Simulated assay, not measured.
Amino acid sequence: MASPLRITSSRLQRQTCWAAIAALALLSGWVLLDSRAPEPAAAPAPRPVPPPAPVSTAPPAPRTALCPDSARACVDEERRLSWLQHHGEITYGPVRVMPGTDAAPDSVATPRGLFRVEWKDADHVSGEFGDPMNHSVFFAPGGIAFHEGSLDAPSHGCVHLSAVDAALFFDALPVGSEVAVF
């Protein structure tokens, strides 16, 4: 019978093996106990909410034979209103505008009639006056255009729109679109 103090080499190897397994299990347990649950992923940043569509305080656009159904944009100089339409149905507006007038100094009357958009320039500067004409949509001879400008002072013949409306008209009116001014 072997004495309890006598350890054979095979028994020593077994004990060493079991000790190693126990140590690994213990370390694994500590690692498992120490490992924290992953933190939840950060919520995605909220998407910016687009501003509400502009609400026009202008009176409704009149149905008139002066603005034919084929026109994509209409300008009522007397009421200082403009709107966009498609097949005669108003798609935007009416919005306030400031056309040119012969009654004001340093102004020319915006020409009346049926025109077509000839060209556009988002960052145009007037060659004659040196003024910025952002979102210009040129539709009549002499450099007459829809563009961003004062709604309180008459233009030099163009049709001034607010910054928001000028950008919208710029995007909505491709070259060749019909414009009625009356």
Rank of each mutant, 00 (worst) to 15 (best):
K120T: 12
E78C: 01
P60H: 03
D102G: 08
G113Q: 04
S126P: 13
P111Y: 09
R72P: 11
E128T: 15
A65N: 09
V97D: 03
S126H: 03
D123H: 15
P105H: 03
F138M: 01
T110L: 02
D152G: 13
V159E: 05
P62N: 02
P60V: 14
P40I: 11
P50G: 09
L114R: 10
A104H: 10
T101R: 09
V117H: 01
A45H: 00
P99Y: 10
V137Q: 02
P62C: 08
E128C: 00
C74F: 00
L151N: 06
P59Q: 11
R116A: 13
A166Q: 05
P46A: 09
L66C: 09
Y92H: 14
H135A: 10
S155D: 11
P48M: 04
S56N: 09
V55N: 02
V49A: 07
D106I: 01
A103T: 15
S56T: 15
P68V: 12
R112E: 12
G93E: 00
G113V: 06
A153E: 14
T91I: 15
A163T: 02
F129G: 01
F146I: 12
H124V: 02
F139H: 01
L81Q: 10
G127P: 12
A122Q: 15
E77Y: 02
C158N: 04
P52G: 01
S150E: 07
P154I: 00
W119K: 13
R72N: 12
P68W: 14
P51I: 08
A140P: 02
V55H: 03
P59L: 09
L66H: 11
A71T: 08
A41F: 03
Y92C: 00
A104K: 08
Y92E: 09
H160W: 05
A145C: 12
A61F: 08
V55G: 00
D76R: 03
P52S: 01
S82T: 13
D121W: 02
R63I: 06
H160Y: 10
V95Q: 06
H135N: 14
A53W: 06
E78Y: 09
K120W: 06
E77H: 07
D69P: 15
P40G: 04
D121Y: 07
P51G: 12
R79T: 12
P50R: 11
G93C: 04
